[in-house]
């Protein structure tokens, strides 16, 4: 990438002494592996994906150009729209619940303890795979022998089909997702809290502000950039939820938990309808890009607000 012409130019421009003479040549060598990886497994696949979404492609035979067929099909595919709805429900629940729990935990941790042990324990679920989280919760939520259901039955008198009923399955899955990520997010917010100068609270106290008011008018505005980041990360992560659902419900009952990544996977790998699967991942990409863009715009607006 670093062209030959760049050599002479850089020598003239970066006249920081002999130390940086010939740097571009070494730089070209050093970034070569990353550049190859970026082009071959990043950039090219993106464009190939765009191309494949306009074709009928079943892996074993070469792709055949079909224009906008896949996209037209997408618009009239009821399963896709149902899947999108289910995914959005999962994302909204995960963001709202996840943010509330993480924020509360971070603030309370910040007030009560600096213990690294506590923060370490909080982080534990983040370190295990989604498969492990899915398996243990599926066992604990088992309608017959699961400990959660035993407690629920003792309290209410009847079992709940957490993962087996259409109404419960998405809230349950999002709770498992929240369980896995809440500690990570709490640590992120905790780190943000540590950057707030204690003098700000002192000033607030002198002005006679109560704790809830200080939280509302000092902590929250100052935390906004980091909260926005947590929301962006949670949204992007939740839209791509796969392992939790693939292991526990496989999309059931009756497509009630057939989230988009799962639907994409089953189209591609059980029906070998690759062109269409790629089309759906393209739709998801556009959706995510839009949402992220809007969120970052909001984040920027907020920054000018507080600074």
């Amino acid at each position: 990438m670093a062209t030959l012409a760049a050599g002479t130019a850089s020598r003239r421009r970066n006249n920081t002494g002999p130390a940086h003479r010939g740097d571009w040549r070494l730089a070209a060598v050093l970034i070569l592996p990353a550049t190859v990886g970026f082009i071959v497994f990043g950039a090219v696949p993106v464009f190939r994906g765009i191309y494949l979404s306009f074709t009928r492609f079943r892996i074993l035979t070469p792709p055949r150009w079909t224009g906008l067929d896949n996209y037209r099909r997408l618009l009239s595919d009821d399963v896709f729209w149902k899947s999108l709805g289910v995914t959005v429900e999962y994302v909204v629940l995960s963001v709202v619940l996840g943010l509330a729990v993480s924020l509360a935990t971070a603030v309370i941790m910040h007030r009560l303890t600096r213990s690294t042990v506590v923060r370490g324990i909080v982080l534990l679920p983040f370190l295990v795979s989604g498969v492990v989280a899915a398996l243990v919760w599926q066992w604990m939520l088992d309608p017959g022998l699961g400990i959660v259901n035993i407690v629920v039955k003792a309290l209410t008198g009847h079992n709940v089909l957490f993962l087996g009923s259409q109404g419960w399955v998405i809230p349950t899955l999002s709770l498992i997702g929240v369980w896995k990520s809440m500690g990570y997010n709490a640590i992120l917010i905790f780190a943000g809290l540590q950057t707030i100068a204690p003098q700000i609270y002192e000033a607030g106290r002198i002005d006679g502000a109560s704790e809830p008011r200080m939280f509302r008018y000092l902590t929250l505005p100052l935390l906004r950039p980091i909260m926005a980041m947590v929301v962006v990360l949670t949204v992007i992560g939740s839209f791509q939820v796969f392992d939790l659902v693939a292991v526990t419900t496989k999309g059931g009952p009756a497509n009630a938990s057939n989230v988009l990544p799962l639907y994409i996977y089953s189209k591609g790998f059980t029906e070998f309808d690759f062109g269409y699967a790629v089309t759906m991942s393209m739709a998801l990409f556009v959706l995510l890009l839009t949402i992220t863009f809007v969120q970052l715009r909001l984040l920027r607006a907020n920054e000018s607000d507080t600074n």
Partner: peptide, 15 residues
Amino acid sequence: LMIPGIMTLLPNFVL
């Protein structure tokens, strides 16, 4: 960083 994993997953599988 802006590109979600699912976008490159299928084309990379094809590759």
